[in-house]
Design a protein around this nucleic acid. Structure first.
Lengths: 210, 210
DNA sequence: ATGTGTTGACTGGTCGATCAGTCAGCAGCT
DNA sequence: AGCTGCTGACTGATCGACCAGTCAACACAT
């Protein structure tokens, strides 16, 4: 089932249909493995239209990331803003705002998670895209976590943030393997993810900063 | 029986030089992005030799994973075996045996980590390779962790194991981004990784199994 | 002389990209 | 209304580049 009401909902115009098909193709085979012709066929348009709208393969790739990252990050920041950083459950709520949106209906499901997982191993193109789309959000969440846990060093918080993202991305991207060992789908286990990450943050905050 | 002692150090025979070049190429561009001709050029051999030794691109890819996974897993199991699972620091030592070898001299550095990160987002080919090379080790470590933490449910341990692997792979594969925020190279921070993962495991063990 | 390792030109196919051209819709003019 | 000219989404044949894989020939050891 595809998410309705949002980006993949009205695949009536060519532009959206191309983005949907491209997201699936890049998720399945990576940037190099996906072919423009296959994307065009899946979208039901001529191959030339991809170049007309997105200025080539790189542009199409960037557009796919941009659409999804925009939705996810807007939702993240919207959930982060009203949190009282002094409350006792602030850390848990912050982590829910960070980890929840990618798992939700706007997150694009496994397809986008796989693209993200591939990007963490990616080249200069991917690095630039990650920076452009996620640096601002990363700073906001690290700052919020630092306020909510003033006892933790900034290095500990930054480490926890990075490891949390790694946890999330890999768990989502290889969710079938996670299910193989743990027996439950990742999408339903946001609480497990948060518990794990919060525990890791606690441990880092308590550890001597060597 | 094929690789001589240390893979990256004595690239004298064509076979090893090809594996080294292929590892770097697959890490940089993924399976589809790497070209056989480019690998052959980098290794200083003719393109036909790749097919002679490895029976095509898929075989070469599998051989790259096989070489590295064999070294890493042998080292992991060697470090795991002598651990007294009843000792108070057993969990920490188990995690060191799990997370340390990929960071060490036999781990292949960032190149292999990137391949692994790409595999977690990969298709059927990657899934089969992961199963073939890492399932046995995964079971061994989950069993060891369960013995060392009999209070934790098996589901909690399995989750912690999977999230730990995700943590490791993403941290290594995108280590420059980790350094950007945390200010320290990942390779020198095995202790940080272990602390984080152990904290996550503690939290999962304590949480109610909903 | 037999076998193992190695070569590099070659093949058929697929790639991303290009571009002349089609077509529906809409303005402005009469 | 009817005609004209223009715009922009869209097409698909075509191109050169590059791809993985093949193969007959060669080097050199046993």
């Amino acid at each position: 089932m595809r998410d309705s009401a949002h980006p993949s909902s009205a695949p009536t115009d060519g532009r959206s249909r191309i983005l949907d098909a491209a997201e699936a193709a890049f998720a399945a085979d990576g940037f190099s493995g996906a072919s423009m012709k296959a994307i065009a066929d899946a979208a039901g348009v001529a191959s030339g239209l991809l170049h007309y709208h997105f200025d080539g393969k790189e542009g199409l790739y960037a557009a796919v990331i941009d659409r999804r990252a925009g939705l996810i990050n807007a939702e993240r920041l919207a959930q982060l803003a009203p949190i009282d950083l002094g409350a006792p459950d602030a850390v848990r709520r912050i982590l829910a705002a960070l980890l929840g949106p990618p798992l939700g209906p706007m997150g694009g499901g496994r397809a986008y998670a796989r693209i993200l997982a591939g990007m963490t191993a990616g080249d200069a193109r991917d690095k630039a895209l990650v920076r452009a789309h996620y640096d601002e959000v990363a700073e906001a969440f690290i700052a919020a976590l630092s306020q909510a846990r003033p006892d933790a060093s900034r290095a500990a918080v930054a480490w926890a943030y990075n490891l949390a993202i790694g946890t999330l991305v890999t768990a989502l991207g290889s969710s079938d393997r996670a299910e193989q060992f743990a027996g439950q789908p990742v999408q339903d286990r946001l609480g497990t993810l948060i518990t794990y990450v919060e525990g890791g943050l606690d441990a880092l905050a308590a550890a001597p900063p060597d």
